[in-house]
Structures are given as C-alpha cells and as structure tokens.
C-alpha cells in the first residue's frame, strides 16, 4: 500500500517536473511573438502588396514597434465583423488596422491605445451622378461595410439621414461596396476618408462629397487584461515618433499624413 502511494507520488512529481521543463524551454528559446490582427482589405493602412505580403501604414509601424521591443511580428488577417471575438479567442494579440475607437468597445472592457489618426466618414459617388450633397441621396441606395464605424453611425448618430436613403446595403468588404457602386447597384458608398481617397486616386470617374459626416479617431484594441502590453506599444510608438522612424513610414503614405495625430500636434 505504502509502496503504491510512493510510486504514485513519484509519478506525479515526474509529470509535473517534465511539464515545467517543457514550458521553461519554450520561453528561453524564442522571442516573444506578437500577433497583429488586420483587415487585409483596408488600404492604405493594411493590405496585401504585389508580392502577396501584408503591408500598409499600420503594418509597417507595427513592424517597427516589434523591432524596437525585440518581438517577433506575425500578421493575421481577421474577419473584420468578428474582429473582437477573434481577439478574445487569442487568435491575435491586438486589432490594429485603421480601427475606429467606439465607446461600446471601451464599455465592453477592451484596452484601447492612444488615438493616432483623425478620421471622418464621407460619401463616395460617381462623378456623373449629379449628387453633390447627402440630401441629394434621398431615396437612393447607399452601401456600407459591415462592422465599420460607418455602419454604426448610420444605425445611431446618423439614423435620421439613413432613414432618408432608399436602402442601406451592408457588404462584407469594401471591394464589394465599390463593385456595387461601379455596377450601379447602389448610388453611393459610405466609407472612411482615407479609403475613399485611395480609391479615387486609383479609379477614375469617382468623387467624394465634400461633407464630413462623422468625426472619429483610430486606435489599437487589446484584450481587457492587456493594459501593460498596450502601454508598451504606446511607448514604443512615441519612441518611433521621436527618432523620426514614424515620419519616415508616414511619408510613404502621403494620403494620410495630414490626419496622423502624432505628426500634427
């Protein structure tokens, strides 16, 4: 009986020791991995370049932050309308992809970084449509991407405006919103200013209605327990701003430079 107990105890000890040996080996060998959650279809902040690698302003800044902190960066394309669920599920360590800071995120307990970008929502229309202001869109159809702040605005703050539209069509990507507009299935796309700017630059025949409908800021979202991680990233970004790396990255994306908070203080 005693012998049995003793054997059992030894076995348990062996198991526990081997387990702890495993985990310490893991920590010692490799660098800390930082998984960045992005919307891979959100130029110029995060998108796939011609070689098929993820790039964009946010991705480059995150790369610089990881270099600064000695982390290994892994970029993970999230399903944008599920981004916070995927964050909670540990599929990524942050959502950093031109993400609008919403009050509901803070209420839900997510840790949000310092805002880094001023944004506004605009309406993109075809040049020859004769639409010059949001009031011209009465009875017309407007597309918006599901899970974006534009969609939230149309449901809440701009619900009165949205009620004058014929239909609000929610697409699951901006590409589809723009295809709907190009194919005349909708009359306007309600979209973040930088996305609209980069689209009008690359595609002729579109124009942005000069009317800012919702002012907001971009930030990075972390899980509720990750306050320390958030301040590490915030501090690293400030270092990059001071040593000029941030400016160097920003200069590659002239469309958005004017709205970057850290460069325009």
């Amino acid at each position: 009986m005693n012998l049995k107990k003793l054997t059992g105890l030894i076995l348990i000890l062996v198991m526990v020791l081997s387990l702890s040996a495993c985990s310490s080996a893991d920590k010692g060998g490799t660098k800390k991995k930082f998984i960045m959650g992005i919307d891979p279809e959100y130029p110029p902040f995060s998108y796939m370049d011609d070689q098929g690698a993820y790039t964009g302003f946010d991705v480059e800044v995150c790369k610089a932050v990881c270099d600064e902190l000695g982390w290994e960066l892994e970029v993970f394309g999230v399903n944008w309308d599920q981004k916070l669920v995927q964050l909670d599920a540990n599929e990524c360590d942050c959502v950093w992809s031109g993400m609008t800071i919403l009050d509901s995120m803070k209420e839900a307990g997510y840790v949000i970084s310092k805002p880094y970008f001023y944004n506004s929502q605009v309406l993109l229309v075809k040049e020859d449509s004769g639409i010059a202001s949001s009031s011209d869109l009465a009875g017309k159809d407007v597309a918006v991407q599901l899970g974006t702040s534009g969609e939230a605005l149309l449901n809440e703050d701009l619900a009165d405006l949205a009620a004058t539209f014929g239909n609000v069509v929610t697409c699951d990507s901006f590409l589809k919103c723009f295809t709907e507009l190009a194919g005349n299935a909708v009359d306007a796309v309600f979209v973040d200013l930088p996305v609209a700017l980069s689209y009008t630059k690359e595609n002729a025949g579109y124009t942005i209605i000069d009317e800012e409908l919702g002012a907001e800021e971009y930030g990075i979202a972390f899980r509720s327990g990750d306050k320390e991680l958030c301040s590490q990233v915030d501090d690293a970004i400030q270092k990059l701003v001071k040593n000029g790396t941030y400016k160097k990255i920003a200069d590659k994306y002239p469309d958005i430079v004017d709205n970057l908070i850290f460069l325009n203080q």
Binding site: D81, A108, L146, E151, A152, N155, T170
Partner: peptide
C-alpha cells in the same frame, strides 16, 4: 443571418 451579424456587431 446578415441581420444577425449586424446586431452582433453593433452590440458586441
């Protein structure tokens, strides 16, 4: 299901 997704989003 689309409407469900929209609600899921706005209500987190």
């Amino acid at each position: 299901f689309t409407i469900g997704k929209q609600i899921a989003n706005s209500q987190t």
